[in-house]
Design a protein around this nucleic acid. Structure first.
Lengths: 335, 335
DNA sequence: GCTCGTTCTGAAACCGGTTTCAAACACGAT
DNA sequence: ATCGTGTTTGAAACCGGTTTCAGAACGAGC
C-alpha cells in the first residue's frame, strides 16, 4: 500500500503538499495539484483514515445504539440515521444493546475513547460513562436521543409528541363509542411509556372513562402483545377497545383475538402505534399512529452532526409530526 | 484526557511497560503491574484505540453491508453477526447499500483503506474495489458472504441450501394436491433467486407440472408481493398454490387475496420463505421455510473472524439447516 | 531596482499508542 | 567469583497522516 510519502517522493513534492492536494485543493497551484493527482492515480494511493484520525481527532463514524435491531420501528429509524450520516460523509457503527446495561456501557466506552465522533441512542437509558461525559460537557456532548425524550438527560433529541399522539389514539376509540378500553403499554420504566400512558389517561378522563381504563404492560414484542391479550381475554374483561403502544403488540393482539374466535373490529377494536409497513397488510389493517420513522432518524443524525461541528450549541429538541391513520381494525362499539 | 505517557510518568515506568500491563499483563512483574494499574485507575486513563490501530493495523471493527436494513430477515441476520462480533471484541459498522452499486463501492473503500478489518455482505454483488482485493489475496481476503452464495466470488459464505429448501416448499404444495403453482421470486439477477427457482422447477418437473408453473418476479418487499399477486389474479390464473421467495411477499400476497375476496387456504394456498417472526401471527399463519437467521449471522461472523486471525485458511462454506414449518396458509387443493 | 505584502511550499513536530532491540537484572550452576 | 541463561524493563523507532511555522517565490507599487 502506497503511503503519502511514496506519493510525495514520486511527485517531487513534500508530504504536506500531497495532504493539501487532498484536503484543501484550492490552496495548491493548479499545475502542482494536477501533477500530484496524477501520481496518486498512478500509484493507486488511498489515504489511511485511521492515521488522519490520530491527528485530527475525527473518526468519521457515529455510534447508534438500539435495544433491538430486529424491531421494525428501530430498523426504519436506523435507516434514516444511516442515510443522513452517509450523506454527510459519516459511517454508522451499530450497537445492539439487547436492553442490557453492560452492553450499553461497553458501547458508551467507544465514544469516551474517541473511537466514534458521536452517539445516537434509541432508548431511554444513558450509559454511566456517557452520562458523565454529558455532565462534563454541560450538555454540549455529541450525544442525541432519538424517538424518546428524557428531560433529565440534557441532550438533543428528535421525537414526536408521544403524549398527544397517544391521546389522539384513545380519542379515536372513545369517538367510536368504546367505553371499556385497555392499554397495552411498553415497559413501565420507560419515559416513552409514561408519556403515552399520560396521554391515554388524559383522554380517558376527558371522556369520563378513567374508571373503566385497564392497563397491561408489554415489552413491544409480538409475543408480548399476544400473551397480554390472551390474559386479558381470560379475565373476561369488558374491554372492546385496545390501544397498543406499538404495532407489533397490536398484531400479536389481533392473533390472540382470532384464537378466541373474536372478530376485530366487530367484537374488539385495536389501535396500534408507529405505522410500520406491515400495519397495512395485516387482517384487519391496523388503525394506528404514524410516526415519520426515517425522518426521525435523519433529524437525529442532523442534530448530532450539528453538535459535532459546533460544540457550543445548546441541546435542541426536534418535534416531528404524527398522524392518525384510520384503517379496518377500529370499528364502532356494539350497542 | 490522560495519555499513556502521563501514566508512565506518574507510575515511574516507561510507556512500554504501561502498554504491556494492558496488553500482556503476564510479562510484567506483579508488583509493578499493580502499581501501574493503580495509576491507570487514579488518572482514569482510557487507551486510545485509534492510536493503537495505526501501529497494529487492527481496527476491531467489521463492516456489514446489507441492501435494506429494514427488511426483517436481514435485521435478524445482522443481529446474529453483531452478537458474534461483540462477543469477540469487535464492533459492527453498518452499511445500508439500498441496492445501489455506488454505495457498495463507497463501503468497499472502507475495507480497502483499512478502516475496518473485514466485510460481511448480505447480498450477491461484490463491489469492484473488494473484488480486486479478493483477487489479489487469492481468496484469503477478509470477506464473507452471508445468506447467499456465489461460486464465482471465492469468498467464505454461510447460508442454507436454498435449492433444496425451495424444492421442499414446492413439494409441499404438490403434495397437497395443487397442480397450478405460481412462484413469486426475488429479483431475477440474484443467484439466490436462481437457486430457489432451480429448486422450484426441479420439484415441478418431478411432479409433472412444469408446464403449469408460472413465474412472477418481485423484489422481496411487502408491496411487490401485493402487487404481483394482484396482477396474477387479474389474469385469471388457475394457480391455487403460490410459493413466495420470502415471507414479506407472502404476506403481501395474502392481503391481495383478501382484497379479491379469496380465502387462503380454501381458494389459494401460500407458502413463504424465512419464517420471520411475523409469519406465525398473520392470518392465516404462514407455512414457510425456516432459516436460522441469527445463526447464519453468527456463523458468518465466525467465518470472518477466523479469516482475519488466520489469513492463509482457504474460503469455507458453512451450510446451515432449514426446516419446513407447516401452518394454516397451506391447505389441500379443492377437487 | 528595491521593498512590501501575499501566496505557496517544505521541514519538522505531532497525534498516542506498540514493538523491537539491547541493556539490566536475577538466579542457578560451575 | 564467574559465567550463562532467562526474564524484565526502557529508549527509541515506527505507524501514516495533518498542521504549524518559517522561508521562498512572486507580483505590485514606488
Amino acid at each position: 500500500m502506497a503511503t503519502i510519502r511514496d506519493v510525495a517522493r514520486e511527485a517531487g513534492v513534500s508530504p504536506a503538499t500531497v495532504s493539501r492536494v487532498l484536503a484543501r485543493p484550492e490552496v495548491v497551484t493548479p499545475d502542482l495539484r494536477e501533477q500530484v493527482l496524477q501520481v496518486i492515480e498512478r500509484l493507486g494511493y488511498a489515504p489511511h483514515p485511521i492515521a488522519a484520525s490520530l491527528k485530527t481527532r475525527r473518526t468519521g463514524k457515529i455510534l447508534v445504539t438500539v435495544p433491538d435491531i430486529s424491531n421494525p420501528f428501530f430498523a426504519k429509524v436506523i435507516r434514516g440515521i444511516e442515510g443522513g450520516a452517509v450523506a454527510a460523509g459519516y459511517a454508522v457503527v451499530l450497537g445492539d444493546t439487547r436492553d442490557l446495561p453492560e452492553r450499553e456501557e461497553l458501547f458508551g466506552l467507544m465514544l469516551k475513547r474517541g473511537e466514534v465522533d458521536g452517539l445516537i441512542f434509541l432508548g431511554h437509558r444513558l450509559p454511566k460513562v456517557i452520562a458523565a461525559l454529558v455532565q462534563e460537557a454541560g450538555g454540549q456532548a455529541p450525544v442525541v436521543n432519538a424517538c424518546e425524550f428524557n428531560s433529565e438527560l440534557s441532550v438533543s433529541s428528535a421525537h414526536i409528541d408521544n403524549r398527544a399522539a397517544a391521546k389522539a389514539a384513545m380519542d379515536a376509540l372513545y369517538a367510536a363509542g368504546h367505553r371499556h378500553v385497555a392499554v397495552l403499554s411498553g415497559p413501565a420504566q420507560s419515559p416513552l411509556t409514561r408519556e403515552r400512558l399520560g396521554g391515554a389517561r388524559a383522554s380517558a378522563q376527558r371522556h369520563g372513562a378513567l374508571a373503566e381504563l385497564q392497563l397491561l404492560e408489554g415489552d413491544f414484542s409480538l409475543a408480548s402483545g399476544h400473551a397480554r391479550m390472551h390474559e386479558l381475554l381470560q379475565t373476561q374483561s369488558k374491554a372492546t377497545g385496545i390501544f397498543c403502544h406499538n404495532d407489533e403488540m397490536a398484531i400479536g393482539a389481533l392473533a390472540a383475538l382470532r384464537e378466541w374466535g373474536l372478530s376485530c373490529p366487530d367484537d374488539v377494536s385495536v389501535v396500534g402505534f408507529d405505522d410500520i409497513e406491515m400495519a397495512s397488510y395485516v387482517n384487519p389493517a391496523l388503525t394506528t399512529i404514524r410516526q415519520p420513522m426515517e425522518q426521525i432518524g435523519q433529524e437525529a443524525a442532523q442534530l448530532l452532526l450539528d453538535t459535532i461541528r459546533n460544540r457550543d450549541a445548546p441541546p435542541r429538541r426536534v418535534r416531528l409530526s404524527w398522524e392518525l391513520i384510520a384503517r379496518g381494525s377500529l370499528g364502532r362499539a356494539a350497542k
